[in-house]
Each structure stands twice: as C-alpha cells, then as structure tokens.
Design a binder for these strands. Structure first.
Lengths: 155, 155
DNA sequence: CTTGAATAGTTCGAATTGTGAAGTATGTCA
DNA sequence: TGACATACTTCACAATTCGAACTATTCAAG
C-alpha cells in the first residue's frame, strides 16, 4: 500500500511532493508532541521552544504566524503553570516581555532535546540529509518571515 | 544565554531548525490555502489533492494521518458539493471508493496548480533547491507512512 | 454452514482551538 | 493638546478533530 503511494507521488510536481512531505511531517510531529508532555498543550510547546530569549508577544505572534489573541491565551496558560512571567518592556509600556522562569527554561531544554529525537525518528534522515534539509528549511522560514508579515514586526 | 542573533541561531540543532522551517511553511501554506477557495475548507482541499485516483476511505485516512471519522465528514461535504461520489469497492463491500467527478477533477487540477505557486512564493526556493527539498520531503513522507502509523488505526 | 472475531465506514457528543471585533492602555506625531 | 496608531486583552462564536458506540461485511475456524 505505502509502496503504491510512493510511486504515485513521483508523478506529482516537486512542489506538491514537497508540500505533501511537509504536511506529513507536521502531522506526525504534532501527534508525537501530543503524547509526551501531559501538562503542556502543543501550542504551549511551540511557544516554549520559540522563547530562546525574552520576546514581546507581538514578535511571538509574528514568529508563530498567528494573531495576538492566540498568544495571550497560551501565555496565560504558561504563566499560570509557572513556566514564564510577563515583564513590562522598558522600551514600550504597552508591551510585555515573556520571560522563561527556571522551570520554563528546564522544560524548554527538555522539549528541544525531545523534539530533536522526534524529528530524527519521524524523518528517518541521516545526519547529512538532516543538515541539508535544515539548511533549506531555514531559508524557507527566512523567506516566510520576511515576506509574509505585515511590515515592521521583524526583530 | 546571550542576545547575539548568530549565537542564538547556532545554538539550535539542525533538527530544530528543520522543524521550525516546516512549521512556518505549514502555517503559511494553510493561511494561503484558506484565502483562495471560498467554497472549500482546507481539509477538503487536502483530500482533493490526495485523490489523484480513486481511493478507499481507510487508505485516505492513513495517507492523511487521521482517523476514519474525519474522512467521513470531509467526504460527506465533498460529495454533497458534487466533487466526488462514493462507489462500492467491488473487492470488499464494506469499503467505499472515493471517485472524483468531473467537477472534482477540475477543482483538483486547479488546486494542484495553485498549490505549486503557493509553495514557490512561500518558500522562495529556486528550482534546484525545490527539487532537493522535494527529494528529502518524499523520503521523509515515505518513512512516516511506513513506520509512523502507530496504535494501528490502519495498516 | 454457522459462529465469533476482525475490519470498513458512520454517527454523534464533547473537547480543543483559533479567530475577529470591541475594549483598555500607551505611544507618536502634528 | 488632540487625533490616531499600536500592544495586548477579553469574549463569544465557529471550525475541527477525536473517540466510543454502532451497522454491515469479511474472514477464519470448526
């Protein structure tokens, strides 16, 4: 069955092949993420991983290609659970900086390590292929963040 | 932990870079898809694209890494709108084959073409990079479909 | 050929989630 | 000072997905 699927894939354009691979990987990773951390939802995991350093909520929204109200809800949950704190941005009192607590940093380190394993196991790529895929993925992400965001929020 | 952008990026493993690229691309593509066809939801688009030939619903569920009940709902919508028909599988009267109508085939052709454009514009990759990315994406998808259907919904 | 277990798909209720519009506080510019 | 833009929040609502229970069919014994 999967062999047939693979063969049919080869008749599609590279763009569609790429999209199908991306979708499969995304769905698989979502599924895997959902089954590791019982007290963190998937969006909470995403946000933790993105918070490699304190960030404003608007920046985070741009980074996650979503709207501010979604960020508010997720930040509320993470703050309530003690993973991060809101700190007023000294440069703009309208804005909040999301800052990881020690607990949050620890959880993030665990997540990053686990996510790496999930990716390797889901993708089945070797180190060289992973590096190449990562290179292209970075390029894509750069392009999306540059072109896909209404002006000004980059940072 | 420092604020230097370069150090931040280099501190991310290739796996995490790859994941972030995949997530950004997925989110961007979803957003783009949502804004082209007013009478098709995103899952309906996905299903149409997957239906390059008649398929059983269970196969489609495995292919889309989801559960049968989700396929039922989406197939109902597409059937109701005249994009496909259910035909009894001659080899197994429990199963249904989803077969595109002319309208469905036409819509699928449009979607595949549009999706290609969306990918090129979202990713910003040139042809060679796209081909390489597609090659790795196919490999990943193959690996996921072979190994990745856990807790046996389908086989 | 009968029985019981497994499989394909359906139905439906519930949980999750994301969104957009309106609201509050602050910043910016003339 | 006033007008408007921006950063985030609140909230009600729609969309989506899942899982458990159900029907119909197939398969494997006996």
């Amino acid at each position: 069955m999967t062999n047939e699927i693979g063969q049919r894939l080869s008749s599609l354009t590279p763009e569609i092949q790429a999209m199908m691979g991306v979708y499969a990987l995304y769905w698989k990773l979502e599924e895997s993420f959902a089954s590791i951390e019982t007290d963190l939802s998937q969006q909470e995991c995403h946000m933790l991983v993105k918070l490699d350093q304190p960030k404003r909520m608007g920046v985070l929204a741009a980074d996650m290609l979503t709207v501010p109200s979604t960020i508010t809800a997720t930040a509320d949950a993470l703050e309530g659970a003690g993973y991060l704190t809101r700190q007023s941005d000294p440069n703009d009192r309208r804005a909040w900086l999301l800052v990881l607590t020690d607990k949050g940093t620890e959880a993030r380190n665990m997540l990053v390590a686990t996510a790496g394993e999930l990716f390797r196991s889901a993708s089945g790529l070797n180190d060289a292929e992973t590096a190449e895929f990562a290179r292209l993925a970075c390029k894509i992400r750069d392009n999306i963040l540059k072109t896909g965001i209404p002006e000004g929020l980059t940072k």
